[in-house]
Nucleic acid binder design. Structure first.
Lengths: 141, 141
DNA sequence: ATTACTGATACTAAAATAGTATCAGTAGGA
DNA sequence: TCCTACTGATACTATTTTAGTATCAGTAAT
């Protein structure tokens, strides 16, 4: 069972890379791609998506590239998952349809939703900022 | 983000159906398939897998079918997920490879593993027995 | 003008998931 | 004994999701 796809993986890594830039510095997709060993064209599409979602901004032309639009601490992993993998939901009510077709509510569904919200909550505690901090801490120690 | 696949879905439903049988009663794949509206051949493969994993036993020939091998309360959803979707793991260390290639440990990985174990733990609290209980409770209320 | 870049979008490849078909063998029962 | 209802085993196809590639138009620094 795999919870995180490449999309999310690459997006997180790109954001981490951008988070380590100096203020107002831009980094090109090519550079990010090389540093993180992520397929260039694939990464570009991901960056476009991050622009749409207001997580990064871009500058066109030579010397252009990308930088973060929000503070690293305000970028939650749960948000990135939402963008690339849709809402965190364990299934689209696998039980209600067949087992509880005569009822509007379903206790089984409730249990699953409870786990869903735990997962979502845990992923929202982790941010690009916290990851970056962990990362530098590790390098030092 | 989808955590539970059809495999797991169908397996849980099949097990719930078998859990409601009288002692020593067998139910055919055809019957289960019809009751749960699950594709017959697909279900058969799932049942074979459940036999291999010692969750159900079968009786061949006319009047044959399947019944549970273990008590419903001892069949955890986490176990069923393991069978059909592999171990609950959020990713195969998406971070360590690129970001922490110079280190054997990775704090990011640790965080993800923490969430993994929460999910696994929650899914192990839910059993076929508990689901069945919830289900009958709902019918009554 | 040339070069290094983004914006946008179409396309293909690979893998996972879902579903179907078939044949051999077993056992109950007319 | 033959028919029928079943499981065991396995091969196959279809669909969907995920991953990755290619291309062209436009922008801006040099």
């Amino acid at each position: 069972m795999k919870l995180l796809t490449k999309n999310t993986d690459y997006a997180v890594r790109a954001l981490l890379t951008l988070a380590s830039l100096k203020k107002d510095e831009y980094l090109s997709a090519r550079q990010i791609s090389q540093r993180q060993k992520v397929p260039y064209q694939y990464l570009r599409r991901i960056l476009q998506e991050l622009i749409k979602k207001n997580l990064v901004i871009s500058r066109e032309g030579g010397g252009g590239g990308f930088r973060l639009k929000k503070r690293p601490n305000s970028i939650e992993i749960s948000g990135i998952i939402n963008i690339f993998q849709g809402r965190i939901q364990l299934s689209d009510c696998m039980f209600r349809k067949k087992l509880c077709h005569n009822r509007s509510n379903c206790v089984l569904r409730n249990q699953i939703q409870r786990i869903e919200s735990i997962v979502a909550s845990e992923f929202s505690k982790i941010t690009i900022g916290s990851l970056l901090k962990d990362l530098t801490k590790q390098k030092g120690g």
